[in-house]
Amino acid sequence: MLLAQQSQTLEPVAPWLFYLFAGVAVLGALGVVLSQQIVRMAVFLLFTLGSVAFLYFFLEAEFLAAIQLIVYVGGTLILIIFGVMLTSKNPFVRLTVPVPQRLLGWGIGLALALMTGFLGVKYVASQGAAAHDSPSLIADAPHDSQSLIVGVQGAEHYGVADLGRNLLGKYALPLELAGVLLLVVMIGAAYIAKGRHADFEEGGAQP
């Protein structure tokens, strides 16, 4: 509707941009699976999380993309890296799993991926391509404008304001609960990580 006119210029970019970021995300994820060094895994994870953040942009969720970048890439990942450093005499140490078990794990992962992917594709097919293979917001728009990339322009359609209204309205209680949870986590994490004093004093040699 509103966004229909501007979309055409950007449309050709969409598929390859999607494949680019999706590809990075997938490669990163595969790297996490296949790598045996924890630091490398962390770096691969970084790529994946970052690419997913970009994909959120395509999905008209730029606020979420920002959160993804800030909380995940900036917060969680750094936390993980800290964890790696704190818990490892040698950050590049390998804790490997025997090959048969690894194969089994990969097999199960592959089976799950195939199964869920298959279900997803079948679901979309069963719902009918016309209705659901294009963003529903612009389903009524002329066919040539039904490009994914239009969503980038869709901030005025649902933006931060919508999110804010929802957070303080419909989702107020969960928001409060999440806040309490974070408090609990903060205290709990501090307590657990500190450990019992006796342990520290007895095992003083430990870092």
Binding site: A14, P15, F18, A22, A25, V26, A29, L30, V32, V33, T48, V52, L55, F58, L59, G109, L110, A111, L112, A113, L114, T116, G117, F118, G120, V121, Y123, V124, A125, A129, H132, D133, S134, Q146, S147, L148
Partner: peptide, 18 residues
């Protein structure tokens, strides 16, 4: 054209990798 199924497929791969 990129549709819902593409994202679902990506998500499936990430899930499997996880």
């Amino acid at each position: 054209m990129i549709g819902l199924s593409h994202f679902l497929a990506l998500s499936a791969i990430l899930f499997g990798c996880g």
